[in-house]
Simulated scan of single mutants.
Amino acid sequence: MKLTMMLTQQAQPSLLKIPTGGMDLSVLRCRPQKEKVIVVVGATGTGKSRLSIDLATRYPAEIINSDKMQVYEGLDIVTNKISNEECEGVPHHLLGIVDSKAEFTARNFVTTASLAMKSIVGRGKLPIIAGGSNSFIEALIDDKNYEFRSRYDVCFLWVDVAMPVLHRFVSDRVDRMVEAGIVEEVRKMYNPNGDYSKGIRRAIGVPEFDTYFRAEYLSSSDKSIREKLLQEAINETKVNTCKLACRQLEKIHRLRNVKGWNIHRLDATSVFEKRGREAEELWAEMVVGPGSVIVNQFLFNFGHLQSFVPTTDSVGTKRREVMAVASL
């Protein structure tokens, strides 16, 4: 692919003015280069999937799911799996592929994600890893044999939302899940002897309903008591989801501040404080725009300039992003 398909003549000279200390750039370009990978992290509900798709529609990219509950088949409402329509035609890997009763460990993720990345790269595409299971991502990137780091250059994007704002959003999202049928979805798989420590039954929104379904299953209480138990289950789901968000945020801070990962923070708080068209415009301005600039700079540095060519139906938008990179 030709770089000139994306860069304007004005942007090219600025982008290529990189100090070389008198080195022959042709020698550098002959060196083996690492493949590029984008990793999108963030607490639950912050819009990781949304950003990964926004980026994937701008580049020839495919997405690898790193959410440890979304790898399982079933319980699409509980696990907030992205729908086929929301995927916008972008291929997704490791999404709903594991039997609901099976155990899928970090080691399993490393193996399957590595195979997916090799396949994606082999077809000339950009792998984008997105999901809230930071333990999976850490196991993949900081593996014992240093295989990932020796093979790939990685760019981390962190979609962040202030916790008070996110907690309100998560609470509202659980209410929307109830409206969408989460109770019936969990009821279909309810087993009074089920093990909530294995498989998809560990997902938040499953064990919380056990007491309610047990009363319903045994017909041991009247309607008013069951309604109370149902509300308690919904509230517990909200509380545990907020606790999960806090744990995920703590892990991201540890990866950034203790392990030294170069994680680029994108503050989406203002987006979640708005609704409708205003929220959509802020998402483009505060998250997608800055994220695209960071990705462009990462992908199109010297020595990697012809690796990927963004695809977009908005030439003006892409030109502004490239010019922003050139001025950095």
Rank of each mutant, 00 (worst) to 15 (best):
H93D: 01
G181M: 06
G260Q: 05
P60A: 12
Q33T: 03
L15D: 05
F213K: 04
F156I: 04
A326Q: 09
V287R: 00
D24F: 06
L299D: 01
T20G: 09
V121N: 01
N301D: 11
F209D: 05
Q297H: 14
P207W: 14
L328A: 11
F104S: 07
L3W: 07
I137R: 00
R187S: 11
I141H: 00
K238E: 11
T57H: 08
R254K: 15
R176Q: 12
T46Q: 01
N193Q: 09
V178D: 09
S224P: 01
R187Q: 12
Y190T: 04
L55W: 02
I77F: 02
A180E: 05
R277H: 10
A130E: 01
K144C: 08
G74A: 12
D195T: 05
S100F: 08
Q70P: 01
E280N: 09
D175M: 12
D143A: 14
Y59H: 03
L244Q: 13
I77L: 14
P207M: 12
N84P: 07
L7P: 01
I97A: 04
W283N: 01
N108P: 05
E73Y: 06
G194Q: 10
V271E: 00
G199L: 15
D143M: 13
T111F: 09
E216K: 08
S197W: 10
V165K: 09
K118H: 13
V287Y: 01
K68R: 06
F136Y: 15
R176C: 10
I18D: 07
I225K: 04
Y212G: 05
Q9F: 09
A102F: 05
S135A: 13
T112C: 06
T4H: 09
T111V: 10
M163Q: 12
V110N: 02
K34D: 01
R277P: 06
S26F: 07
L95N: 02
F104E: 08
Q306W: 11
A268I: 04
H167S: 15
D175H: 14
A180V: 03
I64P: 00
M189P: 02
K243Q: 11
V288G: 05
N191K: 07
D267W: 04
R187Y: 07
S49P: 05
L255G: 00
V287L: 08
R151E: 02
I97R: 08
V90M: 15
H92K: 10
T57V: 14
N134F: 06
S327C: 13
D175Y: 12
K274M: 12
R29P: 04
T105H: 12
E103D: 08
S83A: 02
T317W: 15
K48V: 00
V165F: 14
E285D: 10
T44K: 09
I129Q: 00
L255V: 03
K238V: 08
K48D: 00
Q248D: 08
E179D: 12
N262D: 15
L25F: 09
R277I: 12
